[in-house]
Design a protein around this nucleic acid. Sequence first.
DNA 1: AAAAAGTTGTTGCAATTGCCACAAAATTAA
DNA 2: TTAATTTTGTGGCAATTGCAACAACTTTTT
Lengths: 208, 208
Amino acid sequence: MLNLKENDDLFILSSKCKQVQTRNFNKGEIIMNYIEKRDKVGMIKEGKAELIRFDYEGNKTIIEHFSKNDIFGELFHHINYNNELIVLATEKCEVMFLNANCLEKKCSRNCGIHDLLVEKFVHLLALKIVTLNEHIEFLTKKSIREKLLSYFDRLSHHKIKRRFTLPMSYTDLADYLNIDRSALMRELKNLQEEGFIEKEDRKITILY
Amino acid sequence: MLNLKENDDLFILSSKCKQVQTRNFNKGEIIMNYIEKRDKVGMIKEGKAELIRFDYEGNKTIIEHFSKNDIFGELFHHINYNNELIVLATEKCEVMFLNANCLEKKCSRNCGIHDLLVEKFVHLLALKIVTLNEHIEFLTKKSIREKLLSYFDRLSHHKIKRRFTLPMSYTDLADYLNIDRSALMRELKNLQEEGFIEKEDRKITILY
DNA sequence: AAAAAGTTGTTGCAATTGCCACAAAATTAA
DNA sequence: TTAATTTTGTGGCAATTGCAACAACTTTTT
């Protein structure tokens, strides 16, 4: 698992490399337009953002939520000419950009910290894969109940901490698990009534 | 997108690095047990395999199917002490293993091809993220119809090739999209009757 | 401080989807 | 070549889940 202290080093070190830039964004600003910035990889240093798709009909879909240490970029998505992908700051953000080819080829100037930069980045890539695998695991459960319980199991670190707070709203959780919000609330009520969990706002306690 | 020719180079080069091993497996053999081989990353050079989970009740679940160029290893999963994860060869396999820390730190012997190895590996990591994002995209569609059409859209390279062959059985496709197989067949029939697609065995033609 | 926007909680109803069961066809193993 | 296993195709029925709608709260914006 990623060591955050190490990762902070990444940002400090990166400021010394010419192929890396850091920029600040205010809420509502577009951090990256996938059509324009094909060669860039972004990383959230601080703040929150979301990946939004506008399809050919103009429908807006939030595909991913990004927070500290999340990486994004066209590199991670199949290009689809029917869609437009943008990353939008949902709160004040500090974002690090690096050239995608910087991951493969040495800086032309051989800035000296390059190996370390790549090493840390591989960590983030692996972490992203873990996160995505996890998401798929939740999504492939057959029932709402199973989705919720596997997600809670994860949040409780496999029942080590039986009490935890949801990191997002129930509205967002329904979205994340791809279920209807009212159906989610209904199932939560069932779980409470059957004595599987206790719930107080976004604090959940596992009882089984 | 990954260049396969380049990737073949990876295998050739890797044979020169002391931290990389290649092994052959017959159908039915266990390629990797996640509990035992925490420090190894595997890559399928040739053949097919699957990632299987046995939970505490002994239930078996196929989590992922691997074929050429796919990577796997404990590095990509949250460790869960209730589960056992194994990679099983479903046909004759040639597999490349490398030490996970080889991605971060130079070979102690500094074998010379290390940078290139890492560079190629970053490609595979990025490709895996693309694949997982895609899978999530299909899974998060609301209806079976939408799941099928978005999957077909992908297979047709966004309608460039309107005729294509499914790379797996309908049984496996139902599993991949997390829907009931009979419901999938029913929806396929609907799509045919409504003139959206034509279907002959695993050959699909998009008509809309 | 008021207004606007977003979240939570609940319910009835419709229907999409899952489950079960079985037969035919196709593929693989013996 | 026969036997065994897997895949495909179909249908009835049950029920989980989605949808719509609305009220009470909270949080954010102006």
